[in-house]
Design a protein around this nucleic acid. Sequence first.
DNA 1: ACAACTTCCGAAAACCTTTCCGATAAATAT
DNA 2: ATATTTATCGGAAAGGTTTTCGGAAGTTGT
Lengths: 336, 336
Amino acid sequence: MKHITIKDLAKELGVSISTVSRAFNNKYDIKPETRDLILKKAEELGYRPNPIARKLIQQRSYNIGVVVPEFENSFFPKVLMGVQEVMHDKGYQVLVMQSNYSWEMEKKNVETLVDNMVDGLIVSLTSENQNIDYYKKLLTQNIPIVFFNRTVEDIAASKVLFDDFKWALFATEHLILQGYQHIVHLSGAPHLTLSKNRLKGFKQAHTKHRLEPGKVIQCGFRTEDGERVAKELIEKGEIPRAIFAANDSSAIGAMNVFKQHGYKIPQDIAIVGFTESNLAKHIYPTLTSVEQPTQDIGQTAATLLLEQIANKGVFVPQTIVLNGRLNVRESSMNPQ
Amino acid sequence: MKHITIKDLAKELGVSISTVSRAFNNKYDIKPETRDLILKKAEELGYRPNPIARKLIQQRSYNIGVVVPEFENSFFPKVLMGVQEVMHDKGYQVLVMQSNYSWEMEKKNVETLVDNMVDGLIVSLTSENQNIDYYKKLLTQNIPIVFFNRTVEDIAASKVLFDDFKWALFATEHLILQGYQHIVHLSGAPHLTLSKNRLKGFKQAHTKHRLEPGKVIQCGFRTEDGERVAKELIEKGEIPRAIFAANDSSAIGAMNVFKQHGYKIPQDIAIVGFTESNLAKHIYPTLTSVEQPTQDIGQTAATLLLEQIANKGVFVPQTIVLNGRLNVRESSMNPQ
DNA sequence: ACAACTTCCGAAAACCTTTCCGATAAATAT
DNA sequence: ATATTTATCGGAAAGGTTTTCGGAAGTTGT
């Protein structure tokens, strides 16, 4: 017993295929009574239009695709929630693929999504150097894309971003105002704009408060990166008074190593992180961190994409920058 | 300028459509030279077979769908990694949908996935009572499904499970062997088999060691559930010597509340959790917890599904139970 | 030299829908 | 009463591929 098709339903009712189709897409040129009749019978037989065939002829799917590097940290899952919320409201389904920080896989993911005729894409780049020509080509083919979180400057697409510079400045300033000097920055993956901007913010805070430029250590985003750097610092005997890390994972990695070696947080070393992992308020001591409006990021990205899908062809790329919050916790409170 | 189709490519080369198709599906009845010629030209023109059309006629997609309740906790993302690993190896793409702990959404997700002609499904149930008739229908329609983590007994599908009973017993036993008595169990959502089994394990540990039955408090899986229960216990003045929680989130919630009220962990109260959240080894004190083989769960689920896809029609449902590990940490170490 | 295979390829059907175009009958206008 | 519009429907093309079937060569066997 195979799938029941529109033909079966039409024959069953003694009407033509086109009429059934009209009923399902409720077109104007069908008598309301016959429409109801068809819909009722369809329900009865369990008929549902085959979306594959529909996609093939309509060249659209009412699916949108989201591509993220990972969802092990809570950041991406949370923005995903935002995306889903508005998309489901509008009758879209959300297909998610993770690229595992590999740009080859990212490309493959985007390709399958496009091949599956998603009506649009929301993507957070794995690397800013790697696939951008491919994305530009996609854009010229008029496929709606909005980037978030990790993007690249010179691409004419909509983006929803976070003001990394501003909030890195605030975070650093917070440390300065707490009376800390000689702050060290553990910077993120150097090729990402967000790393660069956080670094810039760190530097700007120093010049603003007429301090010597703070020390910068190339670190990375993973817990192990933070651990490694902390160990190096301990070996060299260069124990900083305060640390501003480019994200929570590296902050926590460093913090743990320092704790293991007997340093007290924040008495000996103050620490602030970035991007509010869900560890921040549970770890000991609780970690001061910049919180991004994750849900909101997802929602605006989705809304932007929807607009773009609606006015296909005649849209102007928008860049929306969202606001955050600095959650001050124990790890950065100067005890004196 | 539209998509380039098989027809364009055929005309360009002066061969028939069928020959081009044969080249791409490398069938036996095509001359190797013409195949190479076609493939080269295709590369040149940027032609790729339209998967929608292909799905429509082949009734298969080389996509598989995964439906999970959420991916905010690291559990599901990690099994997802396992799934992706083996699926990508075999040339499958993985579409992920989250049902947000709503069985209506779960059903919708499964429907879109099926409509999109995924070759199979891997799902973790949101509720064990709600959609199971629907799943049974799917099964009779010969759609390969494997369940994991949250499943239901009387359904003839493959499952990959964890021996919650055994590991709950071990976890409780660990507390007993550390010298703790009067252990309280914070149980999970009562309608889930995994909650029941963890509860059973808790009880079994007591009878095995000839102890009074331990107290059970209906709690839930979220951090707030643990917080609520802890507050209630404090109000009533019934401070337990040890707690075995049905998962890490509730354990952590309870732990935080107790800590805030001045109780020392583990000196005053020992705690062990379940399912090794990524908080466990970062929180203070570090949390003893049962670790599930997440990656492995994903891999076996994927392998099982692949088998089932291969021998469609003539397969016997398999249930695979995987082993875990008890990570003993500070929160349960009896100081004396 | 002729039959019987191989090897390679083209034509056309099939997958399931939507949509354009035209047809019929009823309703309105003249 | 005739002409024109409106409401409703059916036929067929289109979307892009795979696959079955049959045919034209070339190859082998006797």
